[in-house]
Nucleic acid binder design. Structure first.
Length: 291
DNA sequence: ATCCCGCCGT
DNA sequence: ACGGCGGGAT
């Protein structure tokens, strides 16, 4: 593709975003702490669910210092219902690290961000792009899917990141990353709506007739289907967290609390993992949220 | 049943 | 590279 073509497509896409992009709360913020929180929430939790929880969460923990002063259990409680509670524990540890290592100021250096618990390649760059407006490129599941279809081939992690980097213009990273991510979220979905896509005329996969397998399917960063939730260890973990939000649970009642009556062995095995994850503490014969 | 602005330990 | 990790909405 020509450089001229790339410029045309880029402008087409950002114009589409200005017109059709969703008005999401965090897109009005450039506060690094707010962006770090929202991006952490958005790791595998849907946008509509984060929208209604971000405000109250930020009121409870308005700064890294405020969260660092709270207990891990407090953060978990405020996190309740968002799922993958390890993220709440990681966030608490990250707040403490920011307070102790960076004077309470969210760092902007990639290496500093990547060193924070629960902050990986996506979230680190998201903070840099969406808060500090630095010229980086993020690759999430949406963008990975768009890029793979655009090139009509599966991309390895480094390939996807390099390709994404090459598309960013100086000073235009915020709007570009939002635009291409929004395209993946609204149109270039797992089941794509190519008829409404503003850049389909230059999309390799579309022009090839959308052959199977979808090149996005084996591309790095594109999430795949997960194992069944009903009857899983995850379900039992979730049940126990919900109980602990109200009161401590004695080890004798653990199997009931986790929804596995008569299977204390399983309850014990799974709760061990939760202790390792920092989600629960054992005190005497009972379990509670971490102090 | 499927999907969701990933990260981490293996 | 792969599997575990919540939970609600459709």
């Amino acid at each position: 593709m020509t450089v001229k073509g790339q410029c045309a497509d880029r402008q087409t896409l950002t114009e589409w975003f200005e017109l059709h992009g969703r008005d999401l709360p965090w897109r009005h913020s450039r506060d690094p702490w707010t962006i770090l929180i929202s991006e952490t929430m958005l790791q595998q939790t849907q946008v509509v669910r984060v929208v209604e929880r971000l405000g109250p969460f930020m009121e409870r923990f308005p700064s890294p210092e405020a969260m660092a002063a709270a207990s891990a259990g407090d953060v978990i409680t405020e996190w309740s219902g968002l799922g993958y509670n390890r993220r709440a524990v990681a966030l608490h540890r990250t707040a403490q690290a920011i307070y102790e290592l960076h004077g309470g100021v969210v760092p902007s250096a990639l290496a500093d961000l990547l060193a924070l618990p629960g902050v990986g390649p996506y979230t680190a760059r998201a903070v840099r792009v969406f808060a500090f407006e630095l010229d980086d490129a993020v690759v999430d599941t949406n963008i990975g899917r768009v890029l793979a279809r655009w090139e009509n081939r599966s991309l390895k992690p480094a390939e996807a990141q390099d390709f994404a980097n090459s598309l960013v213009r100086r000073g235009g990273a915020w709007i570009w990353n939002q635009s291409i991510m929004e395209l993946g979220a609204l149109l270039c979905r797992p089941q794509p709506h190519c008829a409404a896509c503003p850049v389909s005329r230059d999309c390799g996969w579309f022009l090839a007739g959308q052959p199977t397998p979808d090149p996005a399917s084996r591309t790095a960063g594109v999430t795949t289907g997960q194992s069944r939730f009903e009857g899983s260890d995850r379900q039992g973990r979730g049940r126990l967290m919900r109980h602990l939000a109200r009161q401590d649970v004695d080890e004798a009642n653990l199997d009931d609390a986790m929804g596995w009556p008569g299977d204390p062995a399983r309850a014990d095995r799974v709760v061990q993992g939760m202790v390792t994850d920092g989600l629960v503490e054992r005190l005497g014969t009972s379990y509670r949220l971490p102090a």
